[in-house]
C-alpha cells in the first residue's frame, strides 16, 4: 500500500484544484473525471489497446533487432582489443547522436508506419546495449577464463560458455537502459512519423484539445515502462549471484 500513498494524495490534490477551485481551464489541465471518461471510452472502443500494442510491437522489434546485432558485436569487440580500437572512433561519433535525429532519414527511407519507428528504436538501443556488453565482457574475471581453458574449452567455447554467461548480468542492465530509451524514442517517433501508437494518440488528441486522452496516453506509457522494469527485476534477481 505504501507506494500507492503518494499517487493517491496527488489525485486528491489534482481533483481539489481542478474541480471545486478551478485554478485553470480544463483544456489546459484536464480534471481527473475527464481523464477517467477518456480512459473508459478508449478502453471500450479498443483504441487504447490497439495503440498500446502498436507501440509495444515497435519497442520489442527494435529491441530484438538491436540485441541480435549489438550483443554478438559487443562480445566480439570486448574480446578483441584490436577490433575495439578500430571501432572506437566510429562508435564515439555515432553514439552521441540522439536517436530522434534519425527521424528525417527514417521517414525518407521507410515512409510512415511500423518500420521508421522500429528503426528509430533500433538506433536508440543499439549503443547502450553494445557499450554494456563490451563492458560486461571486459569485466569477466580472468581466472574463470583460465579455469575454463584448463577444463578443455576451445576459443569459441570460452566465449559462449564463460564470457557470455559471465557478462549476462551487465548485458541485462544494458537491455534495461535500452528499453527506457526505446520507449522515449517510440513515442517521439510516433508523434511525427506514424499513424498508430501511444505517441500518435497523444499528438492526435492534443490537436483535438482532448487533454483527457493525452493524459491517458502518457500514463499508458508509464505503465508499460513499469511493466518492463518489473520483468527485468525478475530476470535480474534470478541472474545476479
Amino acid at each position: 500500500m505504501l507506494p500507492l500513498f503518494v499517487p493517491m494524495v496527488m489525485v486528491v490534490l489534482w481533483y481539489v484544484f481542478s474541480v471545486p477551485i478551478k485554478l485553470v481551464p480544463d483544456y489546459v489541465m484536464p480534471t481527473p473525471i475527464m481523464v477517467i471518461t477518456s480512459a473508459y471510452q478508449l478502453i471500450i472502443s479498443g483504441k487504447l489497446l490497439n495503440h498500446a500494442i502498436a507501440t509495444l510491437i515497435k519497442v520489442l522489434l527494435g529491441l530484438i533487432l538491436a540485441s541480435v546485432i549489438s550483443i554478438p558485436l559487443g562480445v566480439l569487440l570486448g574480446w578483441s582489443g584490436k577490433l575495439e580500437e578500430m571501432s572506437k572512433f566510429i562508435i564515439g561519433i555515432l553514439r552521441p547522436i540522439p536517436p530522434v535525429a534519425w527521424i528525417p532519414f527514417s521517414i525518407l527511407w521507410f515512409g510512415i508506419g511500423l518500420i521508421p519507428g522500429t528503426f528509430i528504436i533500433f538506433m536508440g538501443c543499439f549503443f547502450p546495449i553494445l557499450i554494456y556488453t563490451i563492458d560486461g565482457v571486459k569485466r569477466t574475471d580472468n581466472v574463470l577464463i583460465e579455469a575454463g581453458k584448463t577444463l578443455g574449452t576451445s576459443n569459441l567455447q570460452t566465449i559462449t560458455k564463460i564470457i557470455f554467461p559471465s557478462s549476462l548480468p551487465t548485458i541485462i542492465s544494458g537491455l534495461k537502459v535500452g528499453v527506457g530509451i526505446a520507449l522515449m524514442c517510440t513515442v517521439t517517433a510516433e508523434m511525427v512519423a506514424s499513424n498508430s501508437g501511444l505517441g500518435y494518440l497523444i499528438m492526435n488528441s492534443s490537436q483535438l484539445f482532448d487533454t483527457g486522452s493525452v493524459v491517458v496516453g502518457m500514463l499508458s506509457i508509464g505503465v508499460i515502462g513499469l511493466f518492463f522494469d518489473i520483468i527485468f527485476k525478475k530476470i535480474q534477481s534470478k541472474l545476479f549471484w
Binding site: 574475471d141 581466472v143 574463470l144 583460465e146 579455469a147 584448463t150 577444463l151 564463460i162 554467461p165 559471465s166 549476462l168 541472474l239 549471484w241
Partner: peptide, 13 residues
C-alpha cells in the same frame, strides 16, 4: 593437466 587456482574459480552462474 587440471589446475586449481588460489582465487575461487567456480562458475558463479
Amino acid at each position: 593437466r587440471g589446475f586449481v587456482f588460489q582465487q575461487y574459480s567456480l562458475f558463479p552462474w
